Amino acid sequence: MTTIGRCWMMAFGLTLMTAACGSSDAPDIPVGENPTFIKRRPTPVTEFTPVKLEATVDDLIAELNEHTNKPMHAEIVLKVVTGFFAPVATAANRAMGELGMTGNVVGSLEEPGDQQEAVDLQNKQIEQTVAGGAEAIGLAPFGDGNGPAIDAAVAKGIHVVTLDADVEASKRSMYVGTLSGAAGKTAGETLLPILRPPPGTVIIHGNVNPVWATGLERTQGAQDVFEKAGYKTVVSQITLTEEGDGDDATSMKTLIETEDPPVVGMIGMFNESYRCAMAVEDAGRTDIPIVAFDFDPKTVNYMRKGLINATHTQRQYYEGYLVPYILYGIENIGLDETKKILAPLMADELRVDTGIDVVTVDKLDAYNDFLYALGVSQ
């Protein structure tokens, strides 16, 4: 077994995988106390602290501390350990340290290129994790292509919890992360009050491709809000390539100039939301209100320029922090008991909703301070 905090590097083909290193947060247990006693790192209390989520984690720890828990080896397998997933890696490492787990937080250093190659690579990683003696796996999957590898691990008695994205058809124990439909609805409800009354068109920078189910759900969640309020909606399909900045901005500029009734608002559903602001600049229509998704630096810059009114951030830190605790709970007090304690966060029998944060322009600095206090950036 490897110990938490060790850098683990391996290569499959040309893709380099690495652990997120450094777990200095393991608690110091006084001599004579229960060696499995769990002591959390204190969480900063701010207006952005998710109170219900924090209380639920404390309840889980209280129950676990009633038991003498056995040591555990787990692996957290991410798509990447940089960018969007950097807070996930930091938090997972922190939680594993608090729990005294052995294992690694593993992911690529670079965004994957070919999707199928990325899926195949991650499946090999899962297989190697199983062969290495892991008792549980936290997985940020690429999609349904990871299903057979998940099921093979489960068949060997290994619990798998997915995060960030789900593989619903698999035998995974639980999903932890943002619920796309609800997140889209929340984002729509942020924009709705600042729109002028209908008639009018709302441009949604989103996804209409059913292959990307969660992207479609988030887009439709927002779409329903506007259409029920009497607005026409037009979805401008996101381009998930480096060329997307120019392509998407041009497409949305054309919609701004041609739609009837006129465009009265725009909403971005993904990390590339800043392209909405690029479009209004190009069209000379910086009066159009925009709300965004995620906390990309370009989005933040456009917020500071006054072109984006608010953004909606996923709680990546808490996704990464929760998963080791859930795996530890399943191993030591059982799946059903763990689910009972997690009930305040569960949308249904299998999904834990970490929620989203609504960050308005006037709260940017406060939100950055909260992330800094957690020791992460998004």
Rank of each mutant, 00 (worst) to 15 (best):
A131G: 01
G107H: 09
A140K: 06
T178F: 04
A169H: 14
G132R: 15
E227V: 14
E135D: 05
I126F: 07
D166P: 00
V211P: 00
A134M: 10
A95E: 02
S108P: 02
I126T: 04
G107E: 05
T214W: 12
R94D: 03
G215N: 12
T129W: 10
K185D: 02
S173C: 07
K124L: 10
V208H: 02
R196I: 01
A155G: 00
N104I: 08
Q128H: 04
E111I: 00
V202C: 06
L139E: 01
Q223C: 02
V167F: 05
T162W: 03
E189I: 07
E217I: 06
T190Q: 15
L191K: 14
E227D: 08
A183I: 00
Q116R: 13
P210Q: 13
A165D: 07
I137M: 09
V160T: 07
E98S: 03
L216A: 09
G107K: 06
G113T: 01
G100L: 09
Q220N: 12
G107F: 08
E189D: 10
G184D: 04
Q122C: 04
G133L: 03
G133R: 11
Q116C: 04
K156N: 09
A149M: 10
P148Y: 12
L99K: 08
G138F: 02
A169Y: 09
E217S: 11
A153N: 07
G147L: 14
V105G: 00
L139A: 05
D166K: 11
V225E: 10
E135G: 10
N123H: 09
S173V: 05
P112H: 01
D164E: 14
M174V: 03
G215L: 15
T162N: 12
Q125P: 00
T129I: 05
L179T: 00
S180L: 08
A183W: 01
G145N: 11
K124Y: 00
V167Q: 10
L163Y: 03
G157H: 09
G100N: 03
G215S: 11
R172W: 07
R218W: 03
V211R: 14
A155Y: 10
G181W: 11
D166L: 09
L139K: 06
T178A: 02
S170N: 04
R218A: 05
